[in-house]
Structure formats: C-alpha cells, structure tokens
Write a protein that binds this DNA or RNA. Sequence first.
DNA 1: TTGACATATGCAAGTAAGTTGCATATAATA
DNA 2: TATTATATGCAACTTACTTGCATATGTCAA
Lengths: 136, 136
Amino acid sequence: MQKNYEEIIKKVGLRVTPSRLAVLRTLHALNCPIDVQQIEDHLQQQGQTADKVTIYRILEKYEQLGIVKTVFLKEDKLRYELNDEHHHHLVCNNCGSIQAIHGSWLEAAEKYIENQYKFAVSEHTLEFFGMCARCK
Amino acid sequence: MQKNYEEIIKKVGLRVTPSRLAVLRTLHALNCPIDVQQIEDHLQQQGQTADKVTIYRILEKYEQLGIVKTVFLKEDKLRYELNDEHHHHLVCNNCGSIQAIHGSWLEAAEKYIENQYKFAVSEHTLEFFGMCARCK
DNA sequence: TTGACATATGCAAGTAAGTTGCATATAATA
DNA sequence: TATTATATGCAACTTACTTGCATATGTCAA
C-alpha cells in the first residue's frame, strides 16, 4: 500500500480528517491485527485523541472501501489490519504473538469449490493456532 | 461420532442430564453450525427447556472436552457444531446458507509452517464466503 | 477567502452476546 | 436412601459494538 494516506483517503471519496489519517498511520505503524482499544491508545500517544465511536465508524468505512480487513482470532473482539497483500497469521496460544505468513494454499481449493459446488468464492478466512518457536 | 449420547457424555466425565442430552441431540439433528438461540428454540420444540446460561455452560464444557467446535462466520455471535470429521464451510453472503465441505488443503501448508517457522500448528480456522449456486 | 452544505465527530444512551455469583436442584455413589 | 459433588436457573453484570442527535469541520464553489 502506498504511504500517502491523504491520497488513499481522497481516492475512496472520504474527507481527510486528523482521525482518519491517524488511524491509517497507526495500522501501518503497528503492522499487525490490532483491536480498537489499541488504536485508541496509540492515537493518544500520538497526541491525536479520538472517541471509540469515531474509531469504529472509521474502521467500518475503511472496511467497506477495502482499505482495512477484520480479523477474528478467537477472542471476544475483532482486530483490524491494513488490507495489503493477502496473508494469514500464526497465533500462539501461549504468548499471544501474531506472526504474518504469506502463501496461497487455497487457489486449488477455490477452483475445486467453484467446479464441484458452483459456489463463487469471494473471500476466505484462514488462521493458524498453535505454539510459536519461542514458547516451545 | 457415535449416536449414543449418554455414552459420549459419560466418557468425558460429565454427568448425564436432560439438557446435556438435548443439546447433543440438537447439534446432531440440525447438523450445521448453529447459535445459542437456535439451540434454545430447538430444545423448547422438543419439550426440553433450558436457560441460555445453561446452554452456554454446556457448550463451554463440550468445547473444552473436544465434543463441540465453535465457528465464527463474521457475525456478532458464535456458532457451534459437533466436532466430527474435520471440514470447512461455504457461507453464502446472499442467502446465508451454510454448506459443509471436506478437503485437506492445508496439510502441506502446516508442514511448511512447522519447518519454516518452527511453529507447531495445533488447529486452524478456514471458512469460505461467496455466492452459492442457487443465488447466482 | 469566505460561505454553504454535506459529512465527521463526540457524547450519551442503547443493544445484545456472553459471563458470574449464588441459592437450589439433581445425578452419581456408596 | 442418604450424601455430596456437580448442574441448573435466576438476576445482575460485563463489554464490544451500535444508534441518535447536536455540534464541529472538511470541501467546494462563488
């Protein structure tokens, strides 16, 4: 994803506001699926406060417009990350670390699904859970 | 999974109660990821009422003991299904239908992850979203 | 540069899934 | 059948997320 956040926001037809810029910057800086609380905290550290409601609304727009992706990691809340290159995560059940991995293991699967079931796959969710190298 | 629910419950060291039996029967009868409300409704139809709290607690135990699996389908709630043979789902974004599919596309991926990242995968979540044959 | 207007934000209040504490009921066991 | 640990129901709670509405602000055209 390009680094010019103002451009990104304008391109999808949204108004450029300090909160919107700061949320994009936060997602880029932390570079990992983060929750709304983490976003709020990070904004505050950057001297850019924003109400949680505002953050939810910004994320909702960003998701609709394809800028952001939601990630569910078996918690009681969602996480958010930039919708850059397609990837998945290794989630450690012990320390909670989240590592991104790239790999397209499902292309054959999706072709099979289209043929076998006449189901047009538009997206999939795939996350791996287990024990990371450090915790082993 | 064997059909003798009483045996299943005893085997994992739980007491056999009408609610526990009915929840197992419901999961088997509906044979698809269902939410707590659906379970409560189905129990009622079967003349076996149970408080939602009880259902949550039963499902929690069942999940810990490997009898039940939780499924997240981008909703504001979880779904539950029997933890039988490993499978995934095709979720129609249009009509909401959920179809089970079998296929082990991730064995190579998990081997790769173990080698490359020294990460011991213990489970994964994988669901497909799109448009089903009927809705196309 | 400014004025008008649609859009964004904040606050307060609401919704709903899921949890907890505790008293009562019931399954297992001897 | 009596005992006891475990299961259940009720009420109250927690918390992620949403909604309504008044105010503030970004954008654009004059």
